[in-house]
């Protein structure tokens, strides 16, 4: 079949599509430079006041799109037996909830809503030396991400209190050999979070389901204090869409932003700590990637600067508070 006439338009069409894709992936409006942001942050200083009407408006938006109070975790109420649960991090992959899995779910979201003051603790290197531990612990509900270390060396900076800690299945795979061999180390490493909720995105990635369920079995076998909650893929998907509309372009949101969004809806007052995706701190000196190590993440998966920009916009409009810099000034030596 020869259609020499159509060749040119088809070529142009392809070109146009690829340009559109390019624009979608790498949007034209670039992010503000980190130096620029630092200047802005310093300019604003510590001044922050809550804007109740903006907060209510934003909370309404969130509730309309994602129902965090109802959908935050997988429960027997929102995920009945036999339902087909579509994974949010995979293309067309789903799991039918059978009795063996269904029995692991709690009856309903176990928090008493609304929560009062919440701290969402990211693991950014900016937390190191911040002395925010006390302030973090003062909140009623402290959310931490991805099993951060809370050893005595970090207590001053990050505190000890934890009500909810998220665990990424990839951590289970890397640090605990998928819980296929010895499981004691996993239980031991969770002891530091006392009787918190362990939040596992079990139904996001194909390879995350088994390890996450195994985490449940492990904690149950050892009758540990922690309670396992599985992230609801519908919630994660909706939150992802919500932020995509606001201009966060990444394959997947970071756990921190998921948690911050949930907190914004579940809590009356939200402060986020350790969210700072840049190489330098407010004084311009270089900082590490995490407060506990300097292992950079896989590139191209999350787009932390874009996420931070969104949080910063919320901060500016008085919806949540982004804590950067030191909480309590260093005592004179």
């Amino acid at each position: 079949m020869k259609c020499p006439r159509t060749r040119l338009p088809v070529g142009f069409g392809a070109l146009a599509v690829s340009v559109l894709c390019w624009l979608y992936v790498f949007p034209v409006e670039r992010l503000p430079d980190e130096k620029e942001l630092v200047r802005e942050v310093l300019q604003r200083g510590r001044a922050w006041s809550r804007n109740l009407s903006a907060l209510q408006g934003f909370r309404k938006q969130l509730n309309d799109c994602c129902h965090p109070g109802h959908l935050f975790s997988v429960t027997k109420v929102n995920t009945p037996l036999g339902v087909n649960l579509w994974f949010d991090g995979e293309f067309l992959h789903s799991l039918i909830i059978e009795n063996s899995t269904y029995s692991l779910f709690p009856q309903d979201t176990p928090f008493k809503l609304p929560l009062k003051r919440c701290s969402v603790v990211g693991n950014g290197g900016i937390l190191k030396g911040s002395r925010c531990g006390k302030q973090i612990d003062e909140a009623d509900f402290v959310i931490r991400c991805n099993l951060p270390p809370l050893t005595s060396g970090y207590t001053l900076d990050v505190g000890t209190k934890t009500q909810l800690v998220t665990v990424n299945p990839s951590i289970i795979e890397k640090r605990f050999q998928n819980l296929l061999w010895s499981r004691k180390s996993f239980v031991e490493s969770l002891k530091v979070y006392k009787s918190s909720y362990v939040y596992l995105p079990a139904f996001s990635m194909r390879h995350g389901t088994e390890p996450s369920l195994r985490a449940y079995y492990t904690l149950a076998d050892f009758s540990a204090n922690q309670t396992v909650l599985f992230a609801n893929p519908n919630f994660l998907r909706n939150v992802g869409k919500f932020w995509k509309n606001k201009g966060v372009h990444s394959k997947r949101l970071s756990t921190g932003l998921f948690m911050a969004s949930a907190a914004l809806s579940l809590c009356e007052e939200v402060t986020v700590y350790g969210f700072w995706p840049f190489q330098i701190d407010l004084k311009g000196s270089p900082i590490r990637h995490h407060y506990y190590d300097d292992v950079p993440p896989l590139s191209g998966f999350h787009s932390m600067p874009e996420e931070f920009l969104q949080l910063w916009l919320l901060h500016k409009s008085g919806i949540l508070r982004v804590q950067l810099g030191q909480c309590t000034p260093e005592e004179p030596q």
């Binding site: 499981r183 369920l213 195994r214 492990t218 149950a220 076998d221």
Partner: peptide, 9 residues
């Protein structure tokens, strides 16, 4: 032993 282990123990 990939799921529960207590019963076996």
């Amino acid at each position: 032993l990939e799921k529960w282990r207590k019963p076996f123990y």
